[in-house]
Design a binder for these strands. Sequence first.
DNA 1: TAGATTGTTAATCGATTAACAATC
DNA 2: TAGATTGTTAATCGATTAACAATC
Lengths: 218, 218
Amino acid sequence: MKPISGKIVERLARYRTFLTEQAPGHRTHLFSHEIAAAMRTADSQVRRDLMAIGTQGVPRHGYEVEALMEKLDLALSLDRTHAVAVVGAGHLGRALISFLEASRSTLCIKAAFDTDPAKCNRVHAGVKCHPMDSLEAVIAREAITLAILCVPAAAAQGAADQLVHAGVKGILNFAPVALRVPVNVALEEIVITTYLEKLAYFTTHPSKERRNGRHEER
Amino acid sequence: MKPISGKIVERLARYRTFLTEQAPGHRTHLFSHEIAAAMRTADSQVRRDLMAIGTQGVPRHGYEVEALMEKLDLALSLDRTHAVAVVGAGHLGRALISFLEASRSTLCIKAAFDTDPAKCNRVHAGVKCHPMDSLEAVIAREAITLAILCVPAAAAQGAADQLVHAGVKGILNFAPVALRVPVNVALEEIVITTYLEKLAYFTTHPSKERRNGRHEER
DNA sequence: TAGATTGTTAATCGATTAACAATC
DNA sequence: TAGATTGTTAATCGATTAACAATC
């Protein structure tokens, strides 16, 4: 399969969410323009993306939902499970644990970590919290490859270094800091204030005609 | 000031985070290449963005941090406060309240809302939780323009409709649903599983040479 | 068959990077 | 002055959209 850009992967993940949202068995097929409408993109965009993962549709019938779902899972490597760690078991960390445990099974949270001894060795939503010193051992034992970082900004780089050293391959960072990680470790950043600031900008500058991110039309 | 694209606004917000991160008074000036290094972009990108908001640097001295900060605040309209509501006072909602109240003051959380009567009329981190029926009244009273949506997927569209009807101008949606809102309401989506799925993809497809989102190099 | 939709290529659009003269 | 950095334009790159022949 050809290399797929980050943008495409992101859209594929969103198509997947949209498909799971549909009442199962409600529709056996969907048209590219239906998916496009929900995603606020062009139908040709959808067809192009689906082409990239080798999906075939049928003119006048659209794409078979079940087959499409399978292709998406395969492309996103969601056919196997991924062991995830949550670092920082404060409000946000625990919220994410409950949230993810409720929704998804292929992304499986195997452990939480925190410096605070009061939080350690307790279980939240089925996930045990460990002290930071046992991070390397637990990550190896549970074969954890992904980590969600919800520690305070000041502690983020240190925690990231520990994670990288322990062999984690991808980090989702919630701390508002510009992290440094080696090239071979994937990094995604969700800085919530950035999104709010973006909203603040667009609500105070109601531009006549903007269409960028996926934050408007319709 | 010229219209600024969503991408640029996002980067401006990130520059701002980076500047606040710097020890105050530690450096009076910064070079474009220094900011660029922290953001993993090109220096010409930074200069171009700063030009867009009318910032002036001095050759061989760089940009004055304090002046730059002021320009950024002005451009992002962070010179005034924005009243924010959190809809859904579950784990995630409460985590976001604590998180934001701790960090930022121009984005000010004025109210929380929840359907669960057990959560209502209680105060979390200085923010009172109201029942959903009083949403319109409270939003009007507190002049709330932005909302963070942390309700379960099934309730998201309904809550969004209520918010729009109450006059909210921007929504940050955490529910994994494709929301429909009018064109004049700004919408940002943070679907956490999408980010994790993106990480899962890139960790299992360690492509020789990818450089998309801002999720790799260095 | 006629009509709608796919697969795919070509055209457009926007965003990023490179380059370099002006400047301190 | 020489050297480094800015402001800004031109070149490149990638992503999105439009268009349309092939197909059911």
